[in-house]
Amino acid sequence: MTHAEIEELLGAYALDAVEPGEARVVEDHLQECPRCRAELAAHREVAGLLGNAGGEAPAGLWERISGELSLEHALQPEPPVLGPVRLEVPGARGAGELAGANAPLAAPSRRVRRLPAASLALGGLAAALALVVGLLSVKVSNLDTQVTDIRSAVATNGVAQQAALAVANPEHRSVELRSAGRSPRALLVALPDGQAYWITTGPMPELPADQTYQLWAAVAGQIVSIGLLGRAPSDVPVQVTTNMTKFMVTAEPLGGTTRPTSAVVVAGSPSPI
């Protein structure tokens, strides 16, 4: 294309009204032609005014954007920890405070997945669970998974026991979930079959009675719910798949929501194998 032909395209190019092939030619030319760059800048200014319609952004959009970027943010500056991981388990919680629940996971095919409204309260098990969690002061090297100290062998609760076994399983993969301030708050330990356990390792402030923590995963750019963790989560079984690239937790109304509606509390991503 000659200079004159490219020049002729600049107006349409500024309005995104050229074919992809033409756009590439124009872009190449712009690299080396200040005159055309200046003309394009002027056209773009006009387009900016034309397109500058007012209006309100829809409710909830910022929360979705923020959720996505909190995940990115949690990952970029600090690569996931690969060395020995110390699980710092907070002291035992009061009996009856724990209301953990998890939703069954179907293959996530849509961004919006409706969750079962009912929560499965673990209530009665809380005291036993709290005791076990208190004992779960484990030091784990998560590569060779040489378990140096698991004092939870006497676990009486199924979930906590299974979580401890998962940690001890050499084939597990783990994801550390951190807050924006970067302090680790939880570990997601996954076995090859997709069975995974949320293990609270740092302070997760207890939510009001009408709220629950909800765990989300990013799958192919979409955010899907993996399950409800309860208002004061300890160990909660969930199902994961290998295509989940990020995990995050938000505080949501009891029963859960179909998409995150509040700020991300913690987030993390699996380290590359």
């Binding site: 002729e8 395209l9 107006g11 056209h43 006009v46």
Partner: peptide, 15 residues
């Protein structure tokens, strides 16, 4: 093509 370009140019001067 020419009309778009000329029109944008005219608007730029005007604005």
């Amino acid at each position: 093509k020419s009309r778009i370009r000329a029109g944008l140019g005219k608007m730029h001067a005007q604005l």
